[in-house]
Amino acid sequence: MDLFTGGHVGCRGCGAAIAARQAMEALGPRTIIVIPASCMATIGGSGLRTAWRIPFYHSLFECAPAVASGIRAALEVQGIREVNVVSWAGDAGTADIGFQSLTGAAERNEDIIHVCYDNESYMNTGGQAGGTTPFGAWTSDTPSGKPTRQKDMLAIMAAHRPPYLATASIAYPKDFIDKLKRAKEIKGFRYIHVLAPCHRGWGIKEEETVEMARLAVECGLWELYEIRAGEKRLTVVPERKVPVQEYLRRQQRFRTLSEEDLAFFQAKAST
């Protein structure tokens, strides 16, 4: 885990840092990580110092998977093997501004792992709405709640038929780590989408970051599964199930949801 060390300048209770530290446990030192513009691109480095202990490149916003493709090609021509090449992007660098290079790399079946750490908003620029921001969520540029639905990135990425695709949540570290370990053993494009709440964007207390990532699973709005060779398998069946309002009503960003809206989310939740 200490391949991303303490001493970084992420906010107190940063869900993104938790995701990165958990992932490092699985990925290990023979990993090159490319992170486009995002909190994670900036909190681990300042001036001549960094919290990374693996090769890291803070890339431009749109193109982490393309950079990763170039790195893999360079390693191949030099005969350098057994290296995980990872593009690690936020929801913007994955689903929105970064989507073009992501879909390209997925279609080419590049031998890289793309991890989307999703906090469902553009937190590095102060919390604006993006493609994965849920319907109804307050953000700094959707002051009346986001009027449109969340982009279904998992369906979009599954449509690329990658050799490996999985969801994860920082509240289930062993599940996340196991998935990365399985992904490491597979060649080709691997996509892992990890829910990593941001307490500032979600309007929760900083100590509730992990709890929210758990409630998302327990209420059925965030299912933990993997798809290998087209076969979907649930990897975590939560011990307890809760109605969606136990998850949504705890978050300030959903304070304006109506009963009708809650019913919409409840219908969306897996049972």
Binding site: T5, G6, G7, H8, V9, G44, G45, S46, G47, L48, R49, T50, A51, W52, R53, I54
Partner: peptide, 11 residues
């Protein structure tokens, strides 16, 4: 930046 150097002087 050289690896792990933020851990040396955490701010």
């Amino acid at each position: 930046a050289p690896p792990g150097t933020m851990a040396l002087k955490p701010v």
